[in-house]
Design a protein around this nucleic acid. Structure first.
Length: 156
DNA sequence: GCCAACGTTGGC
DNA sequence: GCCAACGTTGGC
């Protein structure tokens, strides 16, 4: 199983929204690298940190699970959507999304706290200038975060 | 609001 | 294929 980190602006869609919905399509990704991760490398059952970005308190807000294979992102065909792409057609889609399911929510692990951990120096989102909205998380990085911030909590 | 860093576009 | 210009991201 692989691990991931997926960014969302909480104003758009937060971990609280996913907890309420239970499950949601991760639409709106318009970056080829991030798309390729979803389309080519994610597997049902993979776990991902749900990261809140571009907000007053950026950080990891919870965990979700990949719940479907990649499918064409319907918003690329929708003229009224911010994510509309005139170059995409149903016969030749450009953008894909997966569905994610809520796993858990916990007190925010602030970006500053992640930065303060030497064991997380390699974490992709901490690299200078990183902007990818979906990034892989290595097994050691995942375990470091679990051990450091979730050891006292119940596991599923 | 600022600004560094990045990805994409498009002229050549 | 190069690269300047532009738009976007995202922390602060």
């Amino acid at each position: 199983m692989r691990h991931w980190l997926m960014k969302s602006e909480p104003d758009e869609y937060s971990i609280e929204d996913l907890e309420r919905d239970g499950r949601s399509a991760w639409f709106g990704v318009r970056n080829y690298q991030a798309r390729n991760f979803m389309r080519d490398e994610m597997r049902i059952g993979d776990l991902a940190f749900f990261y809140h970005s571009s907000c007053p308190a950026p950080g990891i807000a919870g965990i979700c699970q990949i719940a479907s294979a990649a499918m064409p992102d319907a918003t690329q065909f929708d003229r009224s959507s911010d994510y509309f792409d005139a170059k995409a057609t149903p016969a030749a889609p450009i953008w894909y999304c997966v569905e994610v399911a809520f796993v858990r929510r916990f007190p925010l692990i602030a970006l500053a706290s992640l930065r303060a951990s030497p064991a997380l120096a390699s974490l992709r989102i901490l690299q200078r200038g990183n902007r990818l909205s979906i990034t892989p998380v290595t097994e050691p990085e995942w375990q470091t975060i679990e051990r450091q911030w979730m050891s006292g909590e119940s596991r599923r």
